[in-house]
Write a protein that binds this DNA or RNA. Structure first.
Lengths: 340, 340
DNA sequence: CTGAAAGCGCTTACAG
DNA sequence: CTGAAAGCGCTTACAG
């Protein structure tokens, strides 16, 4: 059904119907109520493309997933983030355009999305420590919100981030308080901004405690269980093994747990582990006393917030850039204890 | 840049430029080559909305994710499926519209997507054994491809499915050959079509072997590690415990493994496990000799195929409905052996 | 092989 | 508070 047909059906002009449905103030409230109800009953909804053509902006947010060999979307963290963004979008009647793009075609992809008018704005995912996308999007003129931060970017921009540095500083401090002195770090790829900051937090806490750092105790890789497993075996086999490990994801922690048990040791007794916990829906670390001591911050919530901020920014009143720094909570579980 | 501007720039009429870029045959090949190159250089791409308005069809496929309390998208299987569909879409210059919709608003959501013109077709995910969506989509007139099958739907429709019944029949047969007689089944929620078929396969194989079935050896729940862990403990604690377990996902298998190890037993010695393996990118069961004996079928590939079939069907030549039945391969790993 | 013009379904200044 | 009409950027019959 078109606006024309619908307007005829209800005996009003297209103009009035359009205004009523779009919430313009000039229209009589009784008329509006009647028209909204009629639209619902007859299943009329304005064609989104005609709407775009007339107004020039799309109620669609873009998520461009950089594909590096294996797609990032396979990362369970990304799935939860998308779930959060999706929830926010359905609540606000926005749509999501999802595209998967090879690393070296990012610029082209954003330009295409913009010139085809497919999206009103974009969420930038997995920013690298010195990411070129914000500058690119500024020049294209596409509104965006970064999930994370881009250290190198000077102009003000919207971002939503967890205080990664502080979280790892606190977690390291917590282990130090328990009496640990050899603490390992199994981080994500430190080229990503979040992992870089986590490392800073870890180093700062050690430095503040007057401890030297040992490169053999630090690793940086894609955050899989296999990585946690392999590194845990390596660390436990050292002549002077760490008594505690800090890691950047529950996938890694699961791998560590596996290795520890295969060695006949017990987590939280022979070895302490603190993990960053994105509170993934499919992987619960949420018993009354959680298994892993963790820095917890829900990535799903971050997805909601990113979508919300972006939608505000896309809207007609062109809201200013926002910055949201979320604090992770330090949740004590059964995987930590003083060193033996 | 608009078509008008671009046409003026290259000194041609809008008509010719449009035809050249859309591959119409009437245009001189030299002219076409020149215009395509010029478009690339100047970054011209037709506005998708104007294009829709003129042609009436959108090069966008919809993925509507049913949200049941926790969103399905948190399911890592879904993430891999989307990655596959996304790859296919970028290759064919299609876009993906992702929406998250509560179970009881599905019908409304599909109608909205159709009437707003937001999608040219839709992939139906996680069909239940007697799913109403195909009939709904038929009546709305929205092309679709089902990932899985809908037993109750009579009219011909496009689907892509794994031969779940055969996979579980073969896996059960494999365990029977090894000498197992008490075989448990930890299935997904059997209201879903795939889980229903898996159960049929398991029951058929047992029946063909002349064995009776034991309800205490069967469970049906959301496929989490916690489920596998809890059920494994329960099964191992039975007076007459099973010597083998069949399960529907590697998440479940991981939980079983955990329980077995905590009981001081060894997988592939004291207990055999065969799992269905969707070959998820983030969870590899792909060592030279994989850890779990598995029925393997890549869900990412299924995603690609669904997108491909849907795109063909959306296209102007209105391709007939297709049926793709994929066979899972039975891959022998280290988690199976004859019963002790 | 090429072009002028109508039309796709909306929104919104302008006029009343 | 309401409406007639122009215009958004394309595609495509129709005419040449």
């Amino acid at each position: 059904m078109t606006l024309k047909e619908f307007a005829k059906l209800v005996g009003m002009s297209q103009t009035t119907v359009s205004r009523a449905l779009n919430g313009h103030p000039e229209v009589n409230e009784k008329t509006r109520a009647r028209l909204i109800e009629a639209a619902r009953q007859h299943g009329y909804a304005a064609n989104a493309h005609a709407q775009f053509l007339a107004t020039g902006h799309a109620s669609i947010i873009g998520c461009v997933i950089p594909v590096t060999g294996r797609s990032e979307i396979v990362n369970p963290i990304y799935a939860d983030f998308l779930a959060g963004a999706g929830e926010e979008c359905s609540a606000r009647r926005f749509d999501i355009n999802l595209s998967m793009v090879a690393d070296d075609e990012q610029a082209q992809a954003y330009r295409r999305l913009k010139s085809k008018g497919l999206i009103g704005g974009v969420i930038v995912q997995f920013p690298r420590h010195d990411d070129s996308r914000p500058a690119l999007l500024d020049s294209i003129g596409l509104p965006y919100v970064v999930h994370g931060r881009v250290t190198g970017h000077d102009a003000p921009y919207s971002w939503v981030d967890v205080n990664n540095q502080r979280a790892f500083e606190r977690a390291t401090g917590f282990l130090l308080q328990l009496g640990h002195r050899r603490i390992a770090l199994l981080n994500g790829i430190e080229d990503f901004d979040f992992a870089h900051r986590r490392r800073q937090g870890y180093l700062t806490a050690l430095r503040d405690a007057g401890l030297s750092t040992d490169p053999a105790l630090m690793a940086s890789r894609e955050m899989t269980a296999a990585y946690g497993y392999g590194q845990a075996l390596r660390l436990l086999d050292m002549p002077d093994p760490p008594t505690a490990i800090l890691c950047s994801a529950t996938t890694i922690a699961t791998g560590i747990r596996q290795a520890v048990e295969e060695c006949g040791l017990t987590l939280g007794v022979d070895l302490s582990v603190v993990t960053f916990d994105d509170d993934l829906s499919y992987y619960a670390n949420r018993d009354t006393v959680p298994f892993f001591t963790a820095m917890r911050s829900g990535v799903r919530m971050a997805g909601r917030l990113c979508a919300q901020r972006l939608i505000e920014r896309i809207g007609p009143r062109n809201a200013p850039a926002t910055q949201d720094l979320l604090e992770a909570e330090l949740v004590v579980g059964r995987s930590t204890a003083p060193p033996r």
